[in-house]
């Protein structure tokens, strides 16, 4: 089955199969990233600019713009895993839960 993935309303949210699954304004914990100088960046996502499927685990990865709520660094984030497709269903990752470094390290397109 094909998965319809897109960002809508000016990057306000990620749609998976016509359902609003991931929205802006949540704070994501990004330990393995050099997003800013913080040991554990806590990054509030302000907008999504792209979304894609990646790999055999079918991770849903997003490009976004965010800001670290601790130090104020604003930057783009590439290929942030926001969830995965399990048996055709989207399972969202919890923003606060630490992102798997192995996935997080796969960056850039």
């Amino acid at each position: 089955m094909t998965i319809a993935l897109r960002t809508l309303d000016d990057g306000a949210w990620i749609s998976v199969n016509d359902s609003r699954e991931v929205g802006v304004s949540d704070i994501w914990t990004l330990p393995a990233r050099e997003f800013c100088g913080c040991e554990t960046p806590h990054v509030m996502l302000e907008g999504f600019s792209g979304v894609d499927l990646r790999g055999v685990d079918t991770h849903v990865i997003a490009d976004a713009v965010g800001m670290c709520i601790d130090c104020g660094t604003r930057d783009g984030i590439e290929s942030l895993p926001v969830g995965r497709i399990v048996e055709g269903e989207f399972k969202r990752y919890e923003p606060e839960s630490v992102q798997s470094p192995s996935v997080a390290a796969v960056s850039g397109r």
């Binding site: 990057g11 306000a12 304004s25």
Partner: peptide, 9 residues
């Protein structure tokens, strides 16, 4: 704002 708007923070 966040009362109704998707983009809001």
């Amino acid at each position: 704002g966040s009362e109704f708007c998707s983009l809001s923070i």
